[in-house]
C-alpha cells in the first residue's frame, strides 16, 4: 500500500519535472528541473532495491553531469531561441504528436510483452555495493575495463576540442 503511494508520488513529481525540463524557456531552469527528476528517479531505484545504483545516480548525475551543464550554460550566456512563429508551431505539433504516438505504441508493446508473472520484493542483499561489485569484477570484467578506454577517449576528445588554437 505504502509502495503504491510512494510510487505515484515520485512518478508524478518526476514526470512533471521532466515536462518542465522540456518546456522551460530558460536552460538554467531546465537543468534544475532535471536535478529534481534525477532525485525522484533515485527514490524509485531505492524502491526497486537498487541502492548502489541510486547512490550512483545522485553522485554522478546530480553531482557531476548537471554541474557540468550548469557551468557550460553560465559560460555561454545563452540568448532565448528565436524561431519564426510558423516554424515553432509546426515543430511543436509534429514533435508532440510523434512522441505521443510513440508512447502509445511503446506502452502497448510493454503490456503485451512476455513478462515474469511475479514481481517479488527485492531481497535486502540484491542491490548493495557488494553484490553489484562482485558481478562487475567477475562476469562483467571485460566491459568494465573497456569503460576505462571510453572515458580516456572522452577526456582526450574534450581536451583536444576545447583547446585554443593560437595560430588561427
Amino acid at each position: 500500500m505504502s509502495e503504491a503511494v510512494f510510487f505515484y508520488l515520485f512518478t508524478t513529481v518526476m514526470v512533471l519535472a521532466a515536462l518542465s525540463v522540456v518546456l522551460n524557456r530558460q536552460p538554467i531552469y531546465s537543468v534544475l528541473s532535471l536535478l529534481l527528476a534525477m532525485f525522484c528517479l533515485a527514490a524509485l531505484f531505492v524502491m526497486l532495491g537498487a541502492y548502489f545504483v541510486a547512490a550512483l545516480q545522485i553522485l554522478l548525475y546530480a553531482g557531476a553531469v548537471l554541474v557540468l551543464f550548469l557551468f557550460v550554460i553560465m559560460l555561454l550566456n545563452l540568448e532565448p531561441e528565436a524561431l519564426s512563429r510558423m516554424r515553432l508551431f509546426t515543430l511543436r505539433t509534429a514533435g508532440t504528436l510523434s512522441a505521443l504516438v510513440f508512447f502509445l505504441a511503446l506502452s502497448k508493446i510493454l503490456r503485451s510483452a512476455g513478462q515474469p508473472s511475479t514481481f517479488p520484493n527485492p531481497s535486502p542483499s540484491s542491490g548493495t555495493v557488494e553484490s553489484v561489485g562482485r558481478l562487475l569484477f567477475s562476469t562483467y570484467l571485460v566491459p568494465f575495463e573497456l569503460t576505462s578506454f571510453l572515458i580516456l577517449a572522452a577526456i582526450i576528445g574534450a581536451v583536444t576540442l576545447a583547446k585554443q588554437h593560437p595560430h588561427e
Partner: peptide, 21 residues
Amino acid sequence: ASALLFAIGLVGILTRRNVLM
C-alpha cells in the same frame, strides 16, 4: 513510467532547437 519519461525526452529532442536542450 519509463516509457513516459522516454516520450518526454523525445518531445524535447524533436521540439527544442538549442543544442544544450
